[in-house]
Design a protein around this nucleic acid. Structure first.
Length: 161
DNA sequence: GCCAACGTTGGC
DNA sequence: GCCAACGTTGGC
């Protein structure tokens, strides 16, 4: 079992939207980065836990838990000329972009903001989210990092290290 | 294969 | 809105 973090802009598709979605699940379409695609295609398994992260918003951070609930399969939005993420070079016979489905698990007791995660940079050494210039929208999380961050939700906001 | 130009991401 | 960092593109 591997652990993951997936970013979404709440204006596009928030954790609340995932709750509202039919079956409380959705397909993670629109990833157009090879590294992120490879993680989904090659390394994810059904049942893997996922941190749901809100980016490009007032307080970026982890807001909830989800889980992978499908194997990777072709991202059909790449074939749709009307779609925002259309990619003419993705051939339906040989799809370039893949996605998985994820399912809502639960909200964190409180969001754990990026700023707080950064305060624990030493403990979280190597965590892709806080590596310089990180722009990955799907990234692996070490099991120990995952647990450490999960424990933060039970501590008061702003509690020191 | 190099690398400049460009577009995008995403925190601030 | 700014801008640093990064990935991709395309000329050569």
């Amino acid at each position: 079992m591997k652990y993951w973090l997936m970013k979404s802009e709440p204006d596009e598709f928030s954790f609340e939207d995932l709750w509202q979605a039919e079956g409380r699940r959705t397909h993670w379409d629109g990833v157009r980065n090879y590294q992120a695609r490879n993680f989904m295609r090659d390394d994810m398994s059904v049942g893997d836990p996922v941190f749901y992260y809100h980016s490009n918003c007032e307080t970026p951070g982890i807001v909830g838990l989800a889980e992978v609930c499908s194997e990777a399969y072709p991202d059909h939005t790449a074939f749709d000329p009307g779609d925002k993420h259309f990619d003419a070079k993705s051939d339906p016979e040989n799809p370039r972009w893949m996605m998985v489905d994820i399912r809502y698990k639960r909200k964190l007791k409180r969001p754990v903001p990026l700023s707080e995660i950064k305060q624990h940079a030493k403990r979280l050494d190597g965590f892709a989210l806080i590596r310089r210039g990180n722009r990955l929208s799907v990234m692996p999380v070490d099991k120990s990092h995952f647990r450490f961050i999960l424990a933060l939700e039970s501590k008061p906001a702003g509690a020191g290290s």
